[in-house]
Design a protein around this nucleic acid. Structure first.
Lengths: 337, 337
DNA sequence: CTGAAAGCGCTTACAG
DNA sequence: CTGAAAGCGCTTACAG
């Protein structure tokens, strides 16, 4: 094939200098209509494509953003990615996806790669931003935005839901529906981002409604379907008095439903369940899952917009708490009091 | 912050030439242990990070791969992406994700961006490779690998399952389990990649077993949950005689289950269903979904490996049909004959 | 074993 | 309105 042509070829072909070609290509001022025409003609005839790498070298801008996910195949991450990618693409940025697998070594290696590749900015999704990570991005001197997580570091604005409040609302929803013996399956107290705060919100709701807090009704499902199954089995066999459970993640909620079915417990007939996230599988659940929704795609969009505003307009970004809301479907029953 | 240092700074600091620094950085021959030590020392002291953009400009290699998906938030795509990303990362390649949204304009625009950014290769996932797309990547002169799709173009090796055979096997499975009145909900005859072939396999299986082919038992669910619901509703209300349905996609299979539940039809008691794909939601289904599995993550890995073998070793890649298999869970019942 | 120099394909003062 | 030249940060013959 024809060797891909360069700006030099275009200049020669059009009978002008490379400087002039560069100007018309970049819509800078300083050339006649006539030269513009000649250049555009030459570009077309040669099928010229600018080399973004060369451009990046001089501009020190690559028009690419690095995005770090703890897992790239989860429905949770892909929704966020979708939002990020969409606005990025509209603003002429490309996305490099990085799967950290929640592994420190891998994360640091990726940060290194992103640095060498000179990405313009970084989005860090849903994990804890270790000091080590933070320092690494500080060192690369590019803006950082967090999504579905938060941190106390300066210059690390985040966009997320108020987890505590969302969990609080989930519990209140159950209480309003007449439930008194409510259990919770969460992601583990040691997870300070998505674990602990939801337990706290849950406990607070019970307290505020004068309901007794039974710690044996508060379990850890580790945010996975399997963990949710184990926790649900333990709960449902040991505590027949509970009429409702709040699972702080849809996969765990689905696990509760599955386990209930296996144990012959009707949902929502004998057991109500409310989830968290509103993943796509929530509406595909059988019965369809009532859950508190995080606007994941929108969160991705916002994070992307904030980062790009910093990049393109030098704006400073502020953290943003996005609204959650409970989506009523068919897994919660109204109990007569 | 300190301006990020360059190879020149390192050279000066170590008291050698940039050529020498480049050599030790790239493990080329030609320097004493002593200089190597000095250079490494300087690198460390300055916190030097090579600039991959500059390197890319001269090497004409960016160590990045562009991956095109029709949808980036589907469970299907994310599994493939996961596999691709994993092997890419192990071979020092980064992934730029592109969401084509199955839109021609968007796809072409992305191809253009990938060209300007000088990606080393392209993976095209699960859609039809239009001639226009093919020509665009031909013009960029980089290797291309297809995954979960195929095409007749030269130099477009693919890795996929044998859709026709997989559908054939799904139907056979149902037949072996004693079913005679079998329906199918597919993705539409006009989809030549994942639609038509599966209908063909299905029909062939019935024919080979001397079962009558009722075209009113063959519907189009468009590969979506909603489409699956509509098709299932139509089918289940109009054809009470069917005892089993093959849904050529897990989401549609789940839709059948949901619709059956809504209609008071027990699964698998009165209706058996087998899906296709083995997405994560298949095991979370209630009851757990029997389905024919495509090894999506592995397919992504293979595609990535093939592309990288072409890139790094100049190997030529061949198309590969990967094995499918039916995963038995709990939605198909054995009927006594 | 080592360095000076050209070159990758652009952009951007600077001078006219 | 236009061009010559320097420079972005590397790699790679070439010469020694």
């Amino acid at each position: 094939m024809s060797m891909s042509s360069t700006i030099k070829d275009v200049a020669k072909h059009a009978g002008v200098s490379v400087a002039t070609v560069s100007r018309v290509l970049n819509n800078l001022p300083g050339y006649s209509e006539e030269t513009k025409r000649k250049v555009e003609q030459a570009v077309k005839e040669l099928g010229y494509q600018p080399n973004a790498i060369a451009r990046g070298l001089v501009n020190k801008r690559t028009q690419t953003i690095g995005v770090l996910f703890p897992s790239v195949s989860s429905s949770f991450s892909s929704e966020i990615l979708h939002g990020i990618e969409d606005v990025a693409q509209n603003h002429n940025y490309s996305i490099i996806v990085c799967n950290t697998a929640e592994d420190g070594k891998r994360t640091m290696k990726y940060l290194q790669v992103l640095r060498e590749k000179r990405v313009d900015g970084i989005i860090f999704s849903s994990g804890v931003l270790e000091p080590e990570y933070y320092e690494a991005v500080q060192a690369m001197d590019v803006p950082l935005v967090l999504v579905a997580t938060q941190s106390e570091f300066d210059g690390a604005p985040y966009v997320k839901v108020d987890d505590r409040k969302a969990a609080y609302d989930a519990a209140c929803y159950l209480i309003r529906r007449g439930h008194r013996e409510i259990a919770m399956i969460g992601g583990g107290e040691s997870d300070l981002i998505a674990g602990r705060p939801r337990y706290e919100g849950f406990r607070q709701a019970l307290r505020d409604h004068g309901l007794p807090l039974r710690e044996d009704h508060v379990l850890d499902g580790g945010f996975t379907f399997e963990g949710g199954c184990r926790a649900a089995e333990r709960l449902l066999t040991a505590a027949p008095e509970v009429t409702a459970v709040f699972a702080a993640g849809d996969e765990m909620a689905i696990a509760v439903i599955s386990m209930a079915a296996k144990l012959g417990i009707a949902v929502p007939g004998r057991l109500s369940v409310i989830g968290y996230d509103n993943l796509k599988l929530a509406e595909m659940s059988n019965p369809p899952l009532t859950t508190v929704a995080q606007p994941l795609q929108e969160m991705g969009r916002l994070a992307s917009e904030k980062l790009i505003a910093m990049l393109d307009n030098g704006e400073t970004a502020f953290s943003e708490i996005v609204p959650h809301r409970v989506i009523e479907r068919q897994t919660v029953k109204q109990r007569s009091l």
